[in-house]
Design a protein around this nucleic acid. Structure first.
Lengths: 250, 250
DNA sequence: CGCAGTCTTGAGACAGATCAACTCACGTGG
DNA sequence: CCACGTGAGTTGATCTGTCTCAAGACTGCG
C-alpha cells in the first residue's frame, strides 16, 4: 500500500508548488515546504492509513479519492458501514487528522499522486510566510462553508434532491459545468454515492432511474453519465441558484 | 437591532483579548486587533444581518446564539424552514461569510455580547503575528472536523441517536460534563433543536418522552433538563466513547 | 465465453412526517 | 396574588418515503 514514488515522480511536488501564492512560489519557504513533503503513489482502491500520532496535510496532485470514516457505530453490528465524508480531486489540499481524532481514511478511487506533509511542520514553516498560512486558512474556511452547506442539505432533503445535488456538484468539479448539458464519468460506485449521501444503493439506483425517465440524465455503462440540463437538476436540488463559491476543498 | 454597546461594555473586547495566544496577548498586534473590533449587544431574539459584501469574524463574549440558514428552498413553499447550522456559546469565534455566499445569520438565543471583526482586516493584521493566524487556522480545522463528524451523524442515524447526541454535546458545552449526571437549561426551543437535527418538533418531543420514560433524562419546565447518565446517552448516540476534541468552534 | 460483482427492479416493513387536538408553562393585567 | 390568554410543548392517528430483503439483469474482467 502507498508506495513511495521514485524521484522521477516529483511532478506531484511540482504541482503542489504551483498552487502556492504567486509571490511566494519562488521563495526559500516554498523550497522548504516542498522538502518536507513526501510524494506517494496510491493505486486504485488502496488507502492511506492516518498516522497514529500526527495530523497530516495531503495534497492531491492527480487522481481522485474519497475520505471515509469507518464503521464507528454502535452495537457491534459487524457491518462496516463506511460513511463517505467527502470526495476529493486533483488540486485539493485536505487535512487528515491523526488517528486518535476519529479514524478518517483517504481511499483512492483512481490512481493518485499525493504529497503528504506533517501538519505541524508544515504550519511551522508556513508561519515564516504568512501568505501561505493565510491561503491555507482561506481554504479551510471555504471547506467549512461547504461542509455546513452539505450538512444543511443532509438535514431535511429528499433522496431525489440529494442525488440531483450530488450530480450538479460533480458536474461543477469534474466537468467545470454549472448550466446546460455535460458528460463525464463518475469515478465512484453507487455504494460510495449512497454512503456520502446517507442513502442505500437501491435508493440511489431508483432515483437515477427516475431522473433518466424524466429525461434529465442519461447513463452509459456503469460510470458514464450525461446531464441534459444542469440548471434543472440544480432546481430539483433546491440550490440557491447560481453564484457558487469557487470549489476548493481542504 | 444590534445596538452598539456603550464604551463601558468593552468587557467583550477584553474577553476576546483573553483568548489570544499568551505570547501575543500584550503585543501591539493585539491592540490593533482589538481596535478594529466592534462591540455589539444583541438582545434575545435579535439577529445579526450579515454584511452584504464583507466576510466577518464574530467573537461571542457572552450569551448564546444559533447560526441559521433561512428558507433556501425551492418551490416557493413560503414556509421559512430555518435550518440551524450550529449553536454557539461564550468564547466561540465564528466566521460569518458575506451575504452573497449563502445568507447565514446569527440569532441570539439569550442576550449576547459580541465583537465583530471584518475578516479581511482581521487577517491582514493577524499576518503580522503568525501565531494568531495559526490559532485561527487551528480553530477552523477543529470546526471543520466537528462539522464533518456531525454530518456523518446526520447521514444515517435514528432520531433517538440524534437527540441523545445533541444532549451529550450540550452537556459538554454547557455543563462541561462528559459522564455521570448533570443539570442545565437548554437555551434553545424544541423547534431549534429539531431544525438543527433535521427532525420535526413532534419527533423531538416524542424522543425526549421516550428517554424520560427510560429514566435517562428528567425535565422541568420548558428548558431545564437533567441527564441522569451521560455515558449511557453517549452510547445511545453511537459516540466513539471518550476522548472528544476540546470543543472550540469557529 | 463464462464468472463475479455491480447495478437494477420489485414487494413488504418501519421510521419519521404530517395533520389535528389537547395540555401546560409562563407572562400579563386585573 | 391570582385569573387569564397565548404560544410552546405533548400526545394520538394516519400517511408517505426510504430501508430491507429478495430476485433478476447487466457490465466488465479473466
Amino acid at each position: 500500500m502507498a508506495t513511495i514514488s521514485p524521484p522521477s515522480a516529483d511532478t506531484g511536488i511540482a504541482a503542489f508548488r504551483g498552487t502556492l501564492p504567486v509571490e511566494t512560489r519562488d521563495q526559500p519557504t516554498a523550497d522548504r515546504l516542498c522538502a518536507i513533503g513526501t510524494a506517494v503513489h496510491l493505486a486504485k482502491g488502496e488507502q492511506l492509513t492516518p498516522d497514529p500520532r500526527d495530523d497530516r496535510l495531503v495534497y492531491i496532485a492527480s487522481g481522485c479519492a474519497k475520505l471515509v470514516a469507518p464503521a464507528s457505530l454502535g452495537a457491534g453490528a459487524g457491518l462496516p458501514i463506511h460513511q463517505v465524508l467527502a470526495f476529493h480531486f486533483g488540486g485539493d489540499l485536505i487535512s487528515v487528522l491523526r488517528q486518535s481524532d476519529g479514524d478518517f481514511r483517504l481511499v483512492a478511487l483512481s490512481d493518485c499522486e499525493l504529497v503528504i506533509f506533517p501538519a505541524d511542520r508544515f504550519l511551522d514553516l508556513a508561519q515564516a510566510d504568512p501568505a501561505v498560512l493565510r491561503a491555507v486558512l482561506t481554504r479551510s474556511l471555504q471547506a467549512l462553508h461547504r461542509s455546513r452547506t452539505r450538512m444543511m442539505q443532509m438535514g431535511h432533503k429528499s433522496a431525489g434532491a440529494r442525488i440531483a445535488d450530488f450530480l450538479v456538484s460533480m458536474a461543477e468539479r469534474l466537468a467545470d459545468c454549472t448550466a446546460g448539458a455535460c458528460v463525464f464519468s463518475l469515478p465512484m460506485s453507487r455504494r460510495d454515492i449512497g454512503d456520502s449521501l446517507g442513502l442505500t444503493i437501491e435508493t440511489v439506483s431508483r432515483q437515477l432511474t427516475e431522473l433518466r425517465e424524466a429525461g434529465l440524465v442519461a447513463t452509459e455503462g456503469r460510470s458514464k453519465v450525461c446531464l441534459c440540463d444542469v440548471a434543472a437538476l440544480a432546481r430539483i436540488a433546491g440550490r440557491p441558484a447560481a453564484g457558487t463559491v469557487k470549489t476548493h476543498q481542504i
